[in-house]
Simulated assay, not measured.
Amino acid sequence: MTVTIKDVAKHAQVSPSTVSRVIADNPRISPKTKEKVKEVMESLGYHPNFQARNLVIQKSQTLGIIMENSAALAFQNPFFPEVLRGISAAAHKSQFGLYLSTGATEEEIFEEVVAMTLGKRVDGVILLYSKIGDRVMEYLKNSGVPFSVVGRPYAQAETISYVDNDNVQIAKEVTDYLIGLGHRHIAFVGGTADYVVSLDRLKGYQQALTDAGLPFIQEYIAERNPMQSDEEGAIRRLMELPIRPTAIVTHDDLVAYEVISYLEDMKLSVPEDVSVIGFNNHAISEHLKPPLSSVDISIYELGVQAANLALEKILDETAAVRKVTVPARLIERGSCQQL
């Protein structure tokens, strides 16, 4: 005889709607009630028919994951597999699947987001980036679709649930660290200028210089520009300045790898001639020669929290907007030295 949701409710002494909410992991149901209902489900051998349930309640049990560019490019950066690992772990606990964006251009990604939300292919969305004037974020905010963001929104952050590091503070601490090593000529090689994380880290770098009574020198700033793609030329110009930098803060470890490679081509050694530091603490960074000093931004935890924020909104429409700050810490290795 087939066990039904009513049988579970009867044995657990709760209503069938409570059993449904337990299955959906509704946050309004107490942990004690959830445990009791799940024990009854297990003892009776009840297995929810999620496909039938989803058709009835018009839910897909799926989170849409939107990357900043095509999947082919995104997965070249170790940040994305790691943040997806965190998202996947949190989604699995709530029995949600993932739907990854595959568009190759901004326009294709925007059209894909519209199609996946209007077509009810996903119950909510996680943006894995935050940039100035992003059409996708604006669309999601106006559409009423539950969503969260990895990164501080540039505008109206108080109306959007997001998870981030304190990028201003950690960039300040990194620059303070180099100043403490005796460096007074410190360059900053940032990411693409319209991404909020790039702006925040540049701001932290500037704050550290100001607090230390050091001048902000525009020539010491290099930003990545995908349209120009002249990173090597930018580094060469830095090192050909009349007073060249003795240390470089880079946007992330991938940028640091490129910078170190360009410096080697110029016959400059790290850290003997130039100290270099990155962000993200990729697994390979500690195996470089010299091992790269880097900031561990807890990428996995960023993913977990981003998923939790989106799921909160999906499971409870009245859930409050939340900001989650994930701690970051500097890992000192051999790519920086005392002057």
Results as ranks from 00 to 15, higher is better:
133 G>H: 09
235 I>M: 12
196 V>L: 03
217 I>F: 08
164 D>F: 02
219 E>D: 15
224 R>E: 09
141 K>M: 14
137 M>D: 07
180 G>D: 02
237 R>K: 14
243 I>Y: 02
219 E>Q: 15
244 R>Q: 07
148 S>T: 12
123 D>P: 07
182 G>H: 06
212 A>M: 02
176 D>T: 15
168 V>F: 15
157 A>E: 15
195 Y>E: 10
144 G>H: 11
159 T>F: 04
243 I>N: 05
221 I>G: 13
143 S>F: 02
192 T>Y: 09
145 V>I: 15
135 R>F: 06
220 Y>T: 02
224 R>S: 04
238 L>F: 10
228 Q>K: 15
196 V>S: 04
222 A>F: 00
213 G>Q: 06
175 T>H: 03
150 V>S: 04
223 E>P: 00
243 I>W: 01
219 E>T: 11
117 T>N: 11
157 A>D: 15
189 V>L: 08
223 E>S: 12
226 P>H: 07
177 Y>P: 05
205 Y>S: 10
135 R>Q: 15
231 E>T: 06
239 M>L: 14
238 L>A: 12
131 K>N: 10
193 A>M: 07
252 D>T: 06
217 I>Y: 09
197 V>Y: 05
218 Q>R: 12
247 A>W: 01
189 V>W: 02
155 A>D: 15
226 P>N: 03
148 S>W: 10
225 N>W: 08
122 V>R: 00
129 Y>A: 07
142 N>T: 10
116 M>L: 05
220 Y>N: 07
219 E>M: 12
195 Y>G: 09
198 S>I: 05
149 V>W: 15
187 A>K: 04
184 R>D: 07
236 R>F: 11
245 P>G: 02
139 Y>W: 09
215 P>C: 02
